[in-house]
């Protein structure tokens, strides 16, 4: 069963992409991540032009995080003020990122850049998660536990000016770090087609020391808005959002996520993180492989997407 994608301008097998969406949805439900960082490389591997994969990825992130964000909001797990600060940074980062996609696309280096970005970030995050989860598993085996947040601990971040009080997070910190983190994640989201939760969450926990119960909700809250802005930007600047492809991925992804979440409830947190780390490293390795192995075809042709 084939369907013609209007923006990607190709006929694709619906079942294949439904399966892909469901698989990524399952994993994202299982691990509680957005899944954008898996979806975009998979789309590129399956022949979707990378610009379209990234643009459509942004729309898919909106859909996969909006329900989560609403749920978290109802449970009062969203620090709106902190989220807004992150969002302002995020929008700035997203605008820069989308422009960057355009420039790199014209220079023919977008594929390289996206591959390098994925290898770098997935490599770093995957390795850190792997180490952390192995330690956690060892700790639970030896029976000791450790609190994630040690209150009263200060670092250089707390000495910056422009201090703001974030009541929900019980924080009194400078607005600069959240702005910077937001911008960085927004930028990455725009060029990688991912929500950036896998960077946002650790950054909030370890750098800003936001309480863990607020982290996920606030991160999702800003992800929804930043991805929405990114989607509009990608559509208007790069003409690279394919709604037909997006809908296929969204529908299957949401269904997959439900089963993933159910399966995730039966696994332990440390084990989940270990699995996720392995998965992240696998994707990282797969992308890196293409960069170093001599390609069978050195030439490539492209029509430039949108305005050349």
């Amino acid at each position: 069963m084939h369907i013609y994608l209007p923006i990607a301008e190709m006929s694709v097998n619906v079942l294949l992409f439904l399966g892909m969406g469901a698989a990524v949805g399952f994993l994202s439900g299982l691990f509680g991540v957005g899944g954008g960082f898996l979806m975009t490389p998979l789309l590129i591997f399956s022949g979707i032009p990378s610009a379209v994969a990234v643009g459509t990825g942004a729309a898919q992130v909106v859909a996969s995080s909006v329900s989560g964000a609403m749920a978290q909001y109802r449970r009062n797990n969203v620090d709106i003020k902190l989220g807004a600060v992150l969002l302002i940074g995020g929008i700035v980062g997203s605008v820069i990122g989308v422009k960057m996609v355009r420039i790199l696309n014209l220079a023919g280096q977008f594929d390289l850049f996206i591959a390098l970005a994925y290898v770098t970030f997935l490599g770093v995050i995957g390795t850190l998660m792997l180490i952390e989860s192995i330690h956690a598993i060892q700790r639970t085996r030896s029976g000791t536990s450790r609190a994630l947040r040690q209150s009263g601990q200060h670092n250089w971040i707390h000495r910056l000016p422009l201090k703001m009080r974030f009541h929900r997070s019980k924080l009194y910190i400078s607005a600069i770090p959240p702005l910077m983190i937001g911008a960085f994640v927004g930028f990455l989201g725009a060029i990688m087609g991912a929500g950036g939760g896998f960077i946002m969450v650790p950054a909030m926990i370890y750098l800003l020391r936001v309480p863990t119960n607020v982290v996920v909700g606030t991160s999702l809250f800003q992800t929804v808005f930043v991805s929405a802005v990114t989607t509009v930007m990608q559509a208007s600047e790069n003409y690279s959002v394919d709604v037909v492809l997006g809908l296929i991925l969204i529908v299957s992804g949401v269904i997959g996520a439900q089963y993933g979440a159910a399966a995730g409830a039966r696994l332990k947190g440390e084990q989940l993180r270990l699995l996720l780390a392995a998965l992240v490293l696998l994707v990282c390795f797969r992308i890196g492989w293409d960069l170093v192995v001599t390609p069978s075809e050195l030439f490539s042709i492209s029509k430039t997407f949108g305005v050349p």
Binding site: V66, T231, E237, V241
Partner: peptide, 23 residues
């Protein structure tokens, strides 16, 4: 393209929320 972008976002939000309601 801008309107189309908003349309894509709207579509994504509706799809996401419908699914959440179903869930």
């Amino acid at each position: 393209p801008v309107l189309y972008g908003f349309f894509a976002v709207l579509l994504a939000v509706v799809a996401g929320l419908l699914a959440s309601a179903a869930f």
